[in-house]
Amino acid sequence: MRNFFRFIEKYHFFLLFLVFETLALYLVVNYNQLQQQTFISTSNRITASFLEISGSFRNYFALKRANDELSRENAFLRSQLQNMAETAPSRNVVSSVDLLTPDRFHYRQAKVINNSVNKQFNYITINRGAMHGIKPETGVISARGLVGVVKNVSPHYSTVLSLLNTRLKVSAKLRDSNFFGSLEWDGHSYRHVVLTEIPAHAPVQIGDAVVTSGYSTIFPDGILVGTIEDFQLGEGEGFYRIKVKLSVDFKSLAYVEVAEKISGEEQRNLEKQSQDD
């Protein structure tokens, strides 16, 4: 026993180092399991309030651009409204169509208080949390397109896995042909993501739009991701590797909307049931 204590005393520096290093690497490795830990994140009250102050400065300088974006979105929505009025002449038709539409989403607006594009794991912090009805695993979009997925939620704030995070995979499709594949960031340019698993017989053209597939419970169908900038077919592979230019400029993100699927819970439960069978 005395030898043991002498051993501890002699090597206490190294042993303590091992303890802390193990603890830190445990946090790194178990990142995905520790979903609920909001303490070591920007949705924690203290870090978020600091970031909110600095974010409000940055947003002040981005006001003009935010204004432009909002007015453009307004115009777009107005024209859509007109289209809808034209295609649905009577009120009754609208409501019956409405009932049949399975994908109903509820949108909540939020302000970006922190954002990065230069890490491997980029996150966005928004100033809305559980108290405002934000739930984890809901989609985040902006006027220009797809932004990310809500990860951690605290009472007043939420952290969002940015599309520019190598940990995020999103199901996306080619708008014109409906071929769908998997979208992820390769960690290099903040203007581009990579779409894979599009079969070789799909018609792919530079400039085609890539949108969300709507198969998940996270995003509505048809949210713009970007346009095809470049594509190649790997030798001996049956799938394209497509470079997509993002429609959202992640460097100048100011306002976003959180989309929650109203029947999402039901869909997830049903899918889980059939998986268990």
Partner: peptide
């Protein structure tokens, strides 16, 4: 760990700073 909280990278900066301290 404090820096990790600001960057949403639990453990990453902590592991590097512990190594530096060592």
């Amino acid at each position: 760990l404090t820096i990790d909280a600001f960057l949403n990278t639990p453990g990453m900066h902590a592991s590097a700073t512990v190594f530096l301290s060592f």
